[in-house]
Nucleic acid binder design. Structure first.
Lengths: 214, 214
DNA sequence: GTCTATAGGTGGATAGAC
DNA sequence: GTCTATCCACCTATAGAC
């Protein structure tokens, strides 16, 4: 039926174990054991641990960023090229939040993993973040049309603040309920998207900071 | 002259190497070599690699969080118990930004390291974040007095968004200039503090999100 | 495509001399 | 407090039978 369900089982096991224990701390033995595969199968299917890591990221990032651009396209078409700030923020945030928590999506572990990306040795983070180039460009352009009172520098900073802010509900699955006495539930996805959009749209729209020369 | 400059040299070398290559990827041999110390000295001074890691974090986090509380105290005293949202955000954000980029502070590497905390195996992140308990409590209380239109849940989420957003200028030292064509300079600390405060204060003050039941 | 076996290297930790 | 020498567990990668 499949010449290699092993290939996908390895990706799944790697994704989960990387998210739980960190990339560097996950051995190929743990991965192949979790995938009910042989130790040597990683090298057969991917060539090396490095290549397996890249495959794990590419499998999720490509559809995620395509979906972001698709939503932005739709909003721009619907609004005649001038979508609201809320729509733009939503197009950026919602696909990631849904991927992280939608049970069927298979990305439950992946979003934890994204935050761990920067922790790993070598140039892995740089190679992976190349994948965000188009998204970065498209969304900063869309935002700048809706926020003409901001200099390019202020706009870019606010975009970066946005990226940081919503890493929190993505990465804090275990940490946030603990710290908030259960009040904040990261899996309450659609409400959290609304919370984020309200917060971020207001922050993005704020007057340019006083005393900052650009 | 010193019974053990070795102790501090080990902390310094570990901090730098952890930040550059990740905690798990840094061997004791690399640390002792960087500190011009002997391999066994780590076990003599700290007992284990785990204990060394905790000491690296405690050395920076304790003064940082003390300074945050001190600034908040000062603002509350000056404002008769009702400081502005901007003042509260500033008291939270500014000490970390200054620690990360002030050359004399010795924390150049540390703030990169904080972001890597969640990547590491085991319960390290949980043990370290216990150190934030008092700060979390104090700042959410101060914010809630200034933002009575928010439910406790919405307030806590916005606090978490804030924490995430300013991890960006802290961790993105290398990444941000690259991605913004040099327009955004993470080391432009005082201006970035003003940018963050303007952005976050507006986001915190936004109306409660529609359609979110609390 | 899957397996066993093993090579070749590095990790944290420790004993014991000085 | 500092050093050398060493133990032993574990890692990635590969060779070669099936």
């Amino acid at each position: 039926m499949n010449q290699s369900g092993t290939h996908d089982r390895l990706l799944n096991a790697a994704e989960q174990l990387f998210a739980e224990h960190g990339i560097g701390a996950t051995s190929l033995r743990a991965i192949t054991s979790g995938a009910s595969a042989n130790l040597a199968s990683v090298h057969y299917h991917f060539g090396s641990k490095e290549a397996l890591i890249e495959a794990v990221f590419a499998r999720r990032l490509e559809p995620l960023n395509r979906e972001r651009c698709r939503l932005l396209d739709a909003e721009e078409a619907a609004a005649g090229g001038e979508p609201s700030i809320e729509s733009i923020v939503n197009a950026f945030v919602a696909p990631a939040m849904r991927l992280a928590y939608k049970p069927a999506g298979g990305g439950e572990h992946f979003m934890l993993l994204i935050g761990r990306l920067y922790s790993e040795p070598g140039d892995l983070a740089i190679r992976i973040t190349e994948q965000f180039g188009e998204v970065f460009q498209r969304f900063t352009s869309a935002l700048s049309r809706g926020l003409p009172h901001l200099s390019r520098t202020d706009l870019l900073w606010r975009f970066l603040f946005m990226v940081g802010s919503f890493s929190m509900p993505l990465m804090g699955r275990h940490f946030i309920p603990r710290r908030t006495g259960g009040l904040c539930d990261p899996s309450d996805v659609e409400n959290n998207i609304r919370r984020l959009v309200a917060f971020l749209a207001a922050g993005l729209r704020a007057a340019a900071p006083n005393g900052v020369k650009t």
